[in-house]
């Protein structure tokens, strides 16, 4: 019969947190999926969506107005806005994508709320489509993402839903880690250059900060798994 301390420890551990080995396997699978030519494309759209969504939310939080967002099949995107704080909005894109990836990973370790998590994310995509989708291509991409997030609700197998959302979250975080690295090879373009022009800090500083944040969120996800394994 476990004592009260042990029982309270086990009660505090969400049962949706995977073991270390499973986390590594899911991370490797997510890494593999991001490299596949066609299967990885919708998940790149997912990271791009959360990137532009973060620009939009930062605009609203800083008192600006979002006109619309544009998404492209190659994973690029634009957010058209007026007003707000340029530094906050410019920084929010890459940072926000990694943040959303970690948030989704947390949701994917909550077994009882897994269906609500999928519904919430799918609803966020549909709401963005209604408010900020203007061209057919963006609307098509957003509808695809909504389907990707809402169709799994038809499944009854909870572990599959948990694992699927965790892998999606890891893919978003991996893409959020890879995207800023592209900016190192570009000169005169990108949000890093815009931030450099609006501040006294060079573009490479901003790119490094995004990379650090993305790596940090991946580490936090690992730490959550590691702590849960220690408590078992």
């Amino acid at each position: 019969m476990p004592d009260a301390v042990t029982a309270s420890r086990y009660a505090a551990v969400p049962s949706g947190v995977p073991g270390r080995g499973r986390f590594i396997l899911e991370l490797l699978f997510a890494l593999l999926l991001t490299r596949l030519p066609y299967l990885g494309v919708p998940f790149k759209w997912l990271e791009s969506f959360f990137h532009e969504l973060s620009h939009g939310l930062a605009t609203l939080l800083s008192g600006g107005i979002v006109s619309h967002i544009q998404l492209f099949p190659n994973g690029a995107g634009f957010c058209f806005s007026q007003g707000g704080a340029p530094l906050l909005i410019g920084f929010a894109g890459y940072f926000g994508a990694a943040c959303w990836g970690y948030l989704i990973f947390i949701l994917a370790t909550w077994p009882r709320g897994i269906r609500a998590s999928f519904a919430f994310l799918g609803g966020a995509v549909l709401l963005s489509l209604l408010l900020w989708g203007r061209d057919l291509l963006t609307i098509g991409i957003l509808l695809t993402l909504a389907g990707l997030l809402l169709l799994p609700l038809r499944l009854n197998h909870q572990p599959a839903l948990l694992s699927g959302l965790r892998i999606a979250a890891l893919m978003i975080m991996l893409n959020a880690l890879a995207s800023p690295a592209v900016l190192f090879g570009l000169s005169g373009q990108g949000d890093a250059v815009m931030l450099a022009q609006n501040s006294w800090l060079p573009a490479w500083f901003w790119v490094l900060s995004w990379l650090s944040c993305s790596a940090g969120f991946l580490y936090l996800a690992w730490r959550r798994v590691d702590r849960a394994s220690l408590l078992r």
Partner: peptide
């Protein structure tokens, strides 16, 4: 993949 994607749509 990465660089061309960004180059095709970025126009500062």
């Amino acid at each position: 993949g990465a660089i061309n994607q960004y180059m095709l749509t970025q126009n500062f």
